[in-house]
């Protein structure tokens, strides 16, 4: 019961399948206030599907989701008022300019024009995106689109930030700034659900990591806990090995490397 009280986001026995893929399989986890939770898993593990379910963008086959005590299937609008979402694919109106997009978003969210202008200017400057402010989004590079999307997600000071591979395409400086944004967001008491397939990023950013494979949670814990599990397997084993092992990739990867050796050398 202790979990429920502190959990801003609670997922219980969630399942979702597409025609012939079990994308999410009896998945349970929760995120506490002020916590950065990382969903770590290889491509196709079910991270994006889980996130879409949480947002109410897909309908679950089974399971319960509670976001800020609300049900995504019935309280969608209220939930979206209080969370920020950075999607994997930045489909963010390519025929608008960031300026028009932010005006649109601020109006839909009914924000205070003056306050939001100030904040927006700071974010844009921090992420060195200010000079693209009045260009068509379709002409921006992938990374700059991503910046626009991230700013769009934090403009209204959400309580939970849900970010699907948010660092994809960003340069080193912007990665630093986004990390800072995430950090400050949690200091304010906000929580973050963060998906990535890159272990170092999860290790670097997240307080707690759930490793997910084939839609199932295969390991969960903070970085230390996961390392202890790795050590328990063998001396020489680091986190990458355990990640590959837990996600059934360790054997196939050795085969692949072997093949590459013979063809390239």
């Amino acid at each position: 019961m202790e979990n429920i009280e502190h959990a801003l986001l609670d997922v219980k026995s969630l399942s979702k399948s597409f025609e012939n893929v079990q994308a999410v399989d009896n998945l349970s986890f929760h995120i506490r206030k002020g916590e950065i939770y990382g969903l770590l898993g290889p491509n196709g593990a079910g991270k994006t599907t889980t996130i879409k379910l949480i947002l109410g963008l897909l309908e679950a086959d089974a399971g319960d989701i509670s976001v800020l005590g609300l049900n995504p299937e019935t309280d969608e609008v209220e939930i979206k008022n209080r969370i920020g979402y950075v999607s994997e694919e930045p489909l963010i109106y390519k025929s608008l300019t960031p300026k028009e997009l932010f005006n649109f978003i601020a109006s839909i969210r009914k924000l205070d024009g003056e306050k939001v202008s100030k904040k927006l200017a700071e974010y844009l400057e921090g992420l060195s995106a200010i000079e693209y402010y009045e260009r068509l989004i379709s002409t921006l590079s992938r990374g700059n689109k991503q910046k626009v999307q991230i700013i769009a997600a934090i403009l209204h000071d959400p309580e939970i930030l849900i970010m699907d591979e948010p660092l994809a395409g960003l340069d080193a400086k912007s990665v630093r700034v986004v990390k800072e944004i995430i950090e400050l967001h949690t200091k304010r008491g906000g929580s973050v659900l963060f998906s990535t397939h890159i272990m170092e990023i999860a290790e670097d950013i997240c307080d707690r990591i759930g490793i997910i494979n084939n839609g199932k949670l295969v390991a969960e814990g903070d970085f230390e806990e996961l390392r202890q599990r790795a050590n328990a397997i063998g001396d020489d084993v680091d986190l990458e090995d355990i990640f590959l092992k837990l996600t059934d990739q360790d054997e196939s990867i050795n085969g692949i490397i072997e093949k590459l050796r013979t063809t390239m050398l």
Binding site: N103, A106, I108
Partner: peptide
């Protein structure tokens, strides 16, 4: 056009107007 911070000024309108403007 290279925009600067002074260009950032958000005008909030009603959601319906926002859709129409967009």
């Amino acid at each position: 056009k290279v925009s600067t911070v002074s260009d950032v000024s958000i005008t909030v309108v009603s959601p319906i107007k926002a859709f129409i403007k967009r």
